[in-house]
Design a protein around this nucleic acid. Structure first.
Lengths: 227, 227
DNA sequence: ATTGAGTTTCTTGTATACAAGATTGTTGAC
DNA sequence: GTCAACAATCTTGTATACAAGAAACTCAAT
């Protein structure tokens, strides 16, 4: 027998909603590294019982945002400077890989899309609209992940990209960073257009890695992300 | 006040044990793609209530081994041929990255360790001991992940390596594969020793990618993994 | 004041109870 | 026989109850 499944409200599970909210809270720096996630307090806060909370915890644990010690509790794990550097380096390498594969597989049509995206990035710079630039930049990168032609890799890249989001947010404030970033984008598209996988790898790796290299900026963003 | 924490039995949580067992069952091919994980049946099977099971499910879901449809249930997701190819390609690229960074950072002492590991690999070949070779090969790769000097990347590599384990298992049975694999190992160590990041990347990428290229073998291993 | 055994309280892990959506089965109209 | 409405049943999602380990507290001995 056959029936229809309406993909209307996919999230009727409070546990999922709570997991989302908790992730936001951790990203927003509402918790210090090592803070215990108090089941009872949070249950009261969210107006639910402990059950859905504990399911939500498992999601945070699996994504590395929290750690569970049996019979002790669940503790949030904020990445320290070293781990952050490692995460940025990994992101840079993975983006490099996406670029490599994209250079081998991208279509002319997709190149056009990237050129359009870059045009919008340039407009954002012209208007000095940082939020807009951030949005367009994100689109640019996500689109390249997709052009790797490997949706598994794409998902992994998206996952890490999302995890690093809160630490990348303030990077564009650095004087002249937007313009530099834009120039790198142009170089990236050129490499992709030329089908030069080497150049695409290097361009993307460098483009992302630069964000991880400002050690003091990272640390300060860590310290100020709370307020 | 201070107290001591004995890291004796870390897993007193039945939920964690069950998650491990479920992962094993999925890896072992006990479930078909799309099979529903029946809470009540499994609860009876494991001799626990639904609660720990549902927590275990979240772990499978987070690792992509199962999918949850609200109000419908949790369904196992076995990768099809296409996704498997993508996962192997991603693994190859990530190992390439590990090799690249390792070439830049590996110590002479670590090189010695790899040479020793290769010696043991060769012995396994001489004795035609496939299990032993498999074990030594795994050690070899894990050790290279570590030499990337990036423990975040290392963890990601380990995660994917583990996820692909069931599909790599039968690869060594291919005629002459062990010897070829061994030769590649030698080339990899040479590249690392020379500090040649390019060569190390290529060598590792090729070494892993070869496993994903036997499309029919993968498919057949998919079909026969059940029996 | 410090230590440590014994006790109390708190928290987690699991079982069970209950509510609501999803599936299946039945019945009657056509 | 097909289909639709309705009812019965099953399954999931959440709340609550209970058991046991961990942390905090008490208080006597030194």
């Amino acid at each position: 027998m056959l029936w229809v499944w309406y993909p209307t409200l996919m999230e009727i599970r409070r546990a999922d909603l709570i997991a989302d909210e908790l992730e936001e809270l951790v990203f927003a720096g509402e918790f210090q590294d090592g803070d215990r996630l108090d089941e009872v307090k949070l249950a009261a806060q969210f107006g639910v019982s402990r059950t859905p909370l504990r399911e939500a915890f498992q999601r945070l644990i699996a994504s590395g945002m929290a750690e569970q010690i049996p019979r002790r509790g669940v503790f949030v794990r904020q990445p320290g400077p070293v781990e952050l550097m490692e995460m940025f380096e990994t992101m840079a390498e993975i983006e490099g890989v996406c670029g490599r594969l994209a250079a081998l597989r991208i279509s002319d049509q997709a190149i056009e899309v990237l050129l359009e995206a870059n045009k919008r990035c340039q407009q954002a710079i012209d208007h000095n609209d940082m939020d807009d630039y951030y949005r367009e930049n994100e689109y640019f990168h996500h689109f390249i992940y997709k052009q790797s032609g490997n949706s598994f890799l794409e998902q992994e890249a998206l996952r890490l990209h999302r995890r690093l989001k809160p630490f990348r947010r303030h990077q564009l404030r650095v004087r002249g960073r937007m313009a530099q970033s834009m120039a790198e984008h142009v170089a990236i598209v050129s490499a992709l257009q030329a089908g030069d996988s080497e150049a695409a790898t290097e361009a993307l790796r460098g483009h992302v890695a630069i964000q991880g290299e400002k050690f003091h900026l990272l640390i300060s963003s860590l310290k100020t992300s709370k307020g």
